[in-house]
Design a protein around this nucleic acid. Sequence first.
DNA 1: TGTGAAATAATTTTTCC
DNA 2: GGAAAAATTATTTCACA
Lengths: 152, 152
Amino acid sequence: MSLDDTDKRILTLLQKKGRMSNADLSEKVNLSPSACHRRVQRLEAEGYIRDYVALLDARKMGVPTTVFVEITLQAQADEVLDAFERAVALIPAVLECHLMAGSADYILKIVAEDTEDFARIHRQYLSRLPGVAQMQSSFALRTVFRTTALPV
Amino acid sequence: MSLDDTDKRILTLLQKKGRMSNADLSEKVNLSPSACHRRVQRLEAEGYIRDYVALLDARKMGVPTTVFVEITLQAQADEVLDAFERAVALIPAVLECHLMAGSADYILKIVAEDTEDFARIHRQYLSRLPGVAQMQSSFALRTVFRTTALPV
DNA sequence: TGTGAAATAATTTTTCC
DNA sequence: GGAAAAATTATTTCACA
């Protein structure tokens, strides 16, 4: 049910190197391979570990530009929000979509090749999103850091 | 140097399931295991694949609350930015830090247990960041979606 | 230069204690 | 939780187009 120090250590390590071998992992947490393996299986089965993924280099992949877009909807009826969210989910460049507290505001995190490519994304997708009252885009000049690792 | 369709398919798959076995992967991209393995090694060596990581469940980990914090600095001299960025990097709850275009604005993405825990993070860390002129926090009510997968 | 088949090495996963 | 066996997988080697 809950996590002891060894579990936490395992999670910390796997958040950094998700493909670390069970042998290495077991050594670093002072456990036998089989005991360590059982821990990992439990952490997966109970949902602490959601997934293992490869992280790509945004620059190498040609999308070094990050843009945060803040959107206010005209209404906040559930149908309006649902329609909006369904439409947003279809835009490949959108990595995150958060419904913000307060009025019907969303924050989107979007990646693009450059500002011109973002203009295209805006024309092609963002400008056609349903129920939008206001939209404000903020460009990131530089990503200081970005991690997927949650505090354990 | 560049990526053909098979490379792109490999990257798409590994972005979803980073621990997929090379045998499975090779089958899905219609390649022999060794040919597929060589492709993956190249993608790693050339830096398209930055890392493999485990993604944890924020709710299970006790940090279901996401907060975006927008910070304006008093000055934009390099030393001021550097000092700020170094201090930010030491806060475990901060997952992302972006320098925004325009004036000296930063956007931070922070996770917390709840609003009270965020208040603690604010007191303990944010309020002590050097060079800060303004700070505005926006709470996410709900994460509609969030992916680490870049468009390929 | 890129590919596939087969052999070897390493690792994961299971079984039993 | 640990040890050892079994099954699977990664990685290398080599031959071929």
